[in-house]
Design a protein around this nucleic acid. Structure first.
Length: 867
RNA sequence: AGGCGCGUAGCUCAGUUGGGAGAGCGUCGCCCUUACAAGGCGAAGGUCGGCGGUUCGAGUCCGCCCGUGCCUACCA
C-alpha cells in the first residue's frame, strides 16, 4: 500500500473535488432539484436512494374497499394493502381495455371517510369527489382490476398521477404520522390509522372482504423501519441521461472494463439499462454538505466552489468554510491555527501543506506559506482596508473582532443566502475516488500518470453503489475509464452462510484471528478460499490448518539452515553431479512456478495457493527433504584405511554441497513465490538465508518458469520410486509392522531403478537389506508397484484374513475398472469415433489393469493357500 | 414475478476445452523415526440432487423437475 497517497473522502482536498464535481454536473444540467417521490425513513428522517432500500417479503392483507359512485349508480371496489393511504387518494384507475369498467371511466366516486377539503402539495384544494381514470399500467387480473391512486404515497401512483395531472395529497408528516389531510385521524401513527380506517369502513359496510396477501415491503437498510414513499424536494443526478448512461454502458459492453468473474458483466449491464435517476440528497449530519446557497431574496440557486474566488487565500477560506472548519464569522487566528495544524490523514504535514500538495497545484507559483498568510491577514484583511473596499470578500465586526466571509447571490448580489442543509449520499464522493485521490480537479502529475488504474478489487454487493458510479463519473469527468479490470471477490459469510454484519454480531474479527493464528494464516486462508467467487462460509477452524502450514514451512527452513555448512557459498562451484531427486524437485518447482504465475494472471488466487501448498508440503517436505537426509547425514566409515577415509570425506563433502545448494535454491525460490500470500513468515525466513544479504524478499524478482530446469526423465523415475516406497509402506501397515522396525526386503523387476536409488528405498521404507530374487521366497508376503514386485518376510501370527480382505478390496476396484474399460474397448463406436490417441491410452490402461489384476489374484491365491 | 448462482466423501469445497472421481478438515489404525506430535506413515468413506436428451463416451453440454441461496422489481 502506498501510504504516501493515503486519502480520506472528507479530507480537505477531496471535499473540494466533491464541490467541483457537483458544480459541473449542476451546470451541465445533470444535477437537478425536484419534487419527486422518494424513499423516506420516518425513523432516521432522511431520504434514501433506491439502492438503499431492502425489500422483505411480509405477510399482510389485501383489503377490498367499495368506493360509491357519485351518481348513486352503485360502487367500484378497489383492492389495497395500505388502507391508510386512501385519505390521499385523488383518483381510481382501471385498465382502458377492461370491459367491466369501460362504462365507468370519467365518472366520479365519493372517497369514503373524507368529507373535508384536503390540500395538495402545490397548495390546491382537493375535494372528496375523485375521478375514475383509465391507465395502461393497471393490471386487470390483480385484485378487482380497479386501483386507488395515491400519488403522494406510492411510486406507481405517482407516475399515474403525473400522467393524468392528478393532485398529490400527502397524508403523513415526516415521522409517518397522519397530518391535517387525515381529518380527525391527524396525529395518529400510520398503523393505528390503518386499524381505525378498516374498522370504520367495516362499520359503514364499505369493506367488501379481506384476503391474506404476501408482498415485498421496503425497509431502511440502517434501521429496518418500513419506509414511507413521500413526495419531497430532493436533489438528483440525472444518470439516465445519455451523457452518463451511454458511456457507462459501452465501456463494459465492449470490454474496455472487464469483470472477473465475467458473469458480473451481464448483471452490471442489466442494471445500467434500467437506470433511474439517483437521489443524492440526505437529511443526515455526516457527509459532504451540498455546496448550494439559496438566495432568500431572489430565490436563485447558487453553487459555489473556490473557482468563484480569485485569490488563493479567498479560495482557502472558502474551502475551510464549506468544509465546516470555520464558521462564516471567524478570526484570523482560527484560520492560521487550522492551516498550521497537522492534517487528519497525513499528520506529518500541516493542513496548509496538504492543500498545497493535494489541492492547489495550479497555484504553486503563488507562495502560500505561514509568512504570506500572516501578511494576508494583517494587510488584506486589515479592518481599515476592508472598510475602504466595498467589494471586499470580508467584513469586519469591531465588537466581536471577527471577520465575515461574504457570499453574494450571483444573480441579485444579495448577501441574504442560506446554505442547503442536506448532505450528499456517501457514494457521490466515492464515485469520484479514482481521480479525486490524485488531486482532481487539478491536472496533477499523479492524475496524468496513475489514472486509470489496472485493477479494482471489490465485493459484489457494491457493484451498483460504487463500481458503476465510479465508471459513470470517471468516464464523464475524465473521459476515460477509471480502471481496466474489476475483480469481484467472494463475500465472507459466517459458518451458517449468513452475511456478517455488525448489527447481527456474527463478525469474525481479523485482529482476533491474527492474535490466535497469525496474519499469514489469515491471509493465506482467505486467499485459498476465495475461489468460490460469490461467498465463503467461514468458520474459525479454517485458519488452523493454514497456521499449521506456516509452521511446516518454518520447520522446513529450520531443517535446511541447520544442515547448511558455513562455507557453502564459497564452495558452490565445487559440487557433485545432481541426483535424480535434485532434478525431479527442480522440475516440480518449475511446474509450480508456471502454475502460480498463470493462476495469478487469471486472478485465481485459490489455485495459486493450492499449488504452493501441495508443492511445499506434499513434495518438498514429504519427499525431497526426506531424500536429502541420505546425503546430509552420510558419515565416513571408520573401518576404512585412513587414505580411503579421506577420499570418502571429500566425496561426502561434494555431495553435501550439492544437496545443500539445491535445497537452498529450491527453498529460496519457493519463499519468493509464496511471499505475496504469506508476507511475514517468508520475509523472516528469507532474511535468515545466507543468499539474502539483508535485502527484503519483496524486492526480489518473482520466479518465472525456466524450461532449462525441466527434466521429465528424472521426474518419471522419482515418481516411480515414490510409488514403490508407498506400496512397501502400505503393505507394512497391512502387516502391522511398526514404522520404526527395519525389515528385510526381497524384490524382482526395476533393477536399474533399484541399483540407482536403493538407498532411498532403504531409508524411506525402513528396509535393512534389499535383495534381488527370481521368485517369491518362502515365508514372505508379496506386494507390487507397477513392474516392481517385493516380498516382505513375515513372522507367525499375522492376520492373513485381514490381509486377504485388503487385497480383495483392491481386486474388486480393479475388476470394476477393468469391466468399464473392457466395455469401452469392445464398443465399435468408441474404436471408430474416438481419437486414436484416446483409444491407445485406453488400451494401455487396460493392459496395466490386467497385469495388476493377475498380480493381486496371484497374491490372494498364495495367501489363501497359506491360511 | 423475473434474473443469477449453487446441490460432488461426515463437513468445507476443487474438478481447466466432455475421455480412468480429488483436496483440506474430521474419522479409524500404527508410530515421540535426529525439521516439524501444530508431526510422520497407512486406511476407510462417493448410484457427482432427480429424470430425460445429445454423444462412441456426461460430474462436465442441453431440457425439465426438486431443494437451496442471492439479486432485481411499481403488481395496488
Amino acid at each position: 500500500v502506498d501510504w504516501k497517497r493515503e486519502r480520506f473522502t472528507l479530507d480537505e482536498g477531496f471535499s473540494r473535488a466533491v464541490r467541483q464535481a457537483f458544480k459541473k454536473l449542476y451546470e451541465d444540467g445533470l444535477i437537478y432539484r425536484d419534487k419527486y417521490i422518494i424513499n423516506w425513513c420516518p425513523n432516521d428522517l432522511t431520504a434514501l436512494s433506491d439502492l438503499e432500500v431492502e425489500h422483505e417479503e411480509e405477510e399482510g392483507y389485501l383489503w377490498y374497499i367499495k368506493y360509491p359512485l357519485v351518481d348513486g349508480s352503485g360502487y367500484i371496489t378497489v383492492a389495497t394493502t395500505r388502507p391508510e393511504t386512501m385519505l390521499g387518494d385523488t383518483a381510481v384507475a382501471v385498465n382502458p381495455s377492461d370491459e367491466r369498467y369501460k362504462h365507468l371511466i370519467n365518472k366520479k366516486v365519493k372517497l369514503p371517510l373524507v368529507d373535508y377539503i384536503r390540500k395538495s402539495l402545490d397548495g390546491q384544494e382537493v375535494g372528496w369527489e375523485i375521478p375514475i381514470i383509465a391507465d395502461e399500467r393497471v393490471k386487470p387480473e390483480f385484485g378487482t382490476g380497479a386501483v386507488k391512486v395515491t400519488p403522494a404515497h406510492d411510486f406507481n401512483d405517482f407516475e399515474i398521477g403525473k400522467g393524468h395531472n392528478l393532485p398529490s395529497v400527502c397524508v403523513m408528516d415526516e415521522q409517518a404520522r397522519m397530518n391535517e389531510n387525515a381529518g380527525k385521524l391527524e396525529g395518529l401513527d400510520r398503523y393505528e390509522a390503518r386499524k381505525l380506517i378498516v374498522e370504520e369502513l367495516q362499520h359503514l359496510g364499505l369493506l367488501e372482504k379481506v384476503e391474506k396477501h404476501t408482498h415485498a415491503v421496503g425497509k431502511c437498510y440502517r434501521c429496518k423501519t418500513v419506509l414511507e414513499p413521500m413526495v419531497m424536494t430532493q436533489w438528483f443526478v440525472k444518470v439516465s441521461d445519455d451523457r452518463i448512461k451511454k458511456k457507462a454502458y459501452q465501456v463494459v459492453q465492449n470490454n474496455q472494463i472487464e469483470f472477473v468473474p465475467e458473469s458480473w458483466k451481464k448483471i452490471y449491464l442489466q442494471w445500467i439499462e434500467n437506470l433511474k435517476d439517483w437521489c443524492i440528497s440526505r437529511q443526515i449530519w455526516w457527509g459532504h454538505r451540498i455546496p448550494v446557497w439559496y438566495c432568500q431574496d431572489c430565490g436563485h440557486i447558487n453553487v459555489f466552489t473556490d473557482e468563484d474566488f480569485d485569490r488563493v487565500y479567498d479560495k482557502l477560506i472558502f474551502n475551510l468554510l464549506a468544509d465546516g472548519k470555520i464558521a462564516q464569522e471567524f478570526t484570523p487566528e482560527e484560520v492560521a491555527h487550522i492551516l498550521n495544524s497537522p492534517s487528519f490523514v497525513h499528520p506529518e504535514m500541516t493542513v496548509l501543506e496538504f492543500y498545497k500538495k493535494f489541492a492547489f497545484h495550479r497555484y504553486d507559483s503563488t507562495e502560500v506559506d505561514a509568512h504570506s498568510l500572516r501578511l494576508f491577514f494583517t494587510q488584506d484583511l486589515n479592518p481599515m482596508a476592508i472598510l475602504t473596499q466595498k467589494s471586499s470578500r470580508y467584513r469586519y465586526n469591531k465588537e466581536t473582532k471577527k471577520y465575515t466571509f461574504v457570499l453574494r447571490c450571483k444573480k441579485c448580489s444579495s448577501e441574504n443566502l442560506k446554505q442547503e442543509s442536506d448532505v450528499l449520499d456517501t457514494w457521490f464522493s466515492s464515485a469520484l475516488w479514482p481521480f479525486g485521490v490524485f488531486g482532481w480537479p487539478e491536472n496533477t502529475k499523479d492524475l496524468k500518470s496513475l489514472y486509470p488504474t489496472d485493477l479494482l478489487v471489490t465485493g459484489f454487493d457494491i457493484i451498483f453503489f460504487w463500481v458503476a458510479r465510479m465508471v459513470m463519473m470517471g468516464t464523464y469527468f475524465m473521459e476515460e475509464i477509471p480502471f481496466k479490470d474489476v475483480y469481484i471477490h467472494a463475500l465472507i459469510r459466517d459458518e451458517k452462510g449468513q452475511k456478517m454484519s455488525k448489527t447481527k454480531g456474527n463478525v469474525i474479527d481479523p485482529l482476533n484471528i491474527i492474535e490466535k493464528y497469525g496474519a499469514d494464516a489469515l491471509r493465506f486462508t482467505l486467499a485459498i478460499l476465495t475461489q468460490q467467487g460469490r461467498d465463503i462460509k467461514l468458520s474459525e477452524r479454517r485458519f488452523e490448518g493454514y497456521k499449521h502450514f506456516a509452521n511446516k514451512l518454518w520447520n522446513a527452513a529450520r531443517f535446511i539452515l541447520l544442515n547448511l555448512d558455513d562455507d557453502l557459498l564459497s564452495n558452490l562451484p565445487y559440487v557433485a553431479p545432481p541426483r535424480p531427486e535434485d532434478l525431479w524437485i527442480l522440475t516440480l518447482l518449475n511446474e509450480t512456478i508456471k502454475e502460480v504465475n498463470q493462476a495469478l494472471q487469471e486472478y485465481n488466487y485459490s489455485k495459486a495457493c493450492q499449488a504452493l501448498y501441495d508443492f511445499i508440503w506434499s513434495e518438498f517436505c514429504d519427499w525431497y527433504i526426506e531424500m536429502a537426509k541420505h546425503r546430509l547425514y552420510a558419515k565416513v566409515d571408520p573401518s576404512l584405511p585412513e587414505e580411503e577415509q579421506r577420499r570418502q570425506e571429500q566425496e561426502i563433502k561434494k555431495e553435501r554441497i550439492c544437496v545443500q545448494s539445491n535445497l537452498l535454491y529450491v527453498f529460496e525460490r519457493t519463499l519468493r513465490l509464496l511471499h505475496p500470500f504469506m508476507p511475514y513468515i517468508t520475509e523472516e525466513l528469507w532474511l535468515s538465508l545466507p543468499t539474502a544479504h539483508g535485502e527484503s524478499v519483496s524486492l526480489m524478482e518473482y520466479p518465472q518458469h525456466n524450461p532449462g530446469e525441466v527434466f521429465s526423465e528424472q521426474k518419471q523415475k522419482v515418481e516411480k520410486l515414490k510409488a514403490i516406497i508407498t506400496a512397501i509402506r502400505a503393505l507394512r501397515s497391512d502387516l502391522k509392522i511398526e514404522p520404526s522396525k527395519k525389515i528385510k526386503l526381497f524384490y524382482r523387476g526395476e533393477k536399474d531403478l533399484v541399483n540407482e536409488m536403493s538407498h532411498h528405498i532403504m531409508l524411506l521404507a525402513k528396509v535393512s537389506s534389499l535383495e534381488e530374487v527370481e521368485e517369491k521366497p518362502q515365508g514372505t508376503v508379496a506386494g507390487f508397484s507397477g513392474d516392481f514386485e517385493f516380498y516382505i518376510p513375515v513372522s507367525e501370527g499375522i492376520n492373513v484374513e485381514e490381509l486377504i480382505n485388503s487385497y480383495q478390496k483392491r481386486l474388486k476396484d480393479v475388476l470394476a475398472d477393468l469391466e468399464k474399460f473392457e466395455r469401452k474397448l469392445s464398443s465399435e463406436g468408441f474404436l471408430k469415433k474416438a481419437p486414436p490417441e484416446e483409444v491407445q491410452k485406453t488400451q494401455e490402461i487396460y493392459n496395466e489393469l490386467l497385469t495388476e489384476k493377475e498380480k493381486i489374484q496371484n497374491i490372494i491365491n498364495i495367501l489363501t493357500q497359506a491360511r
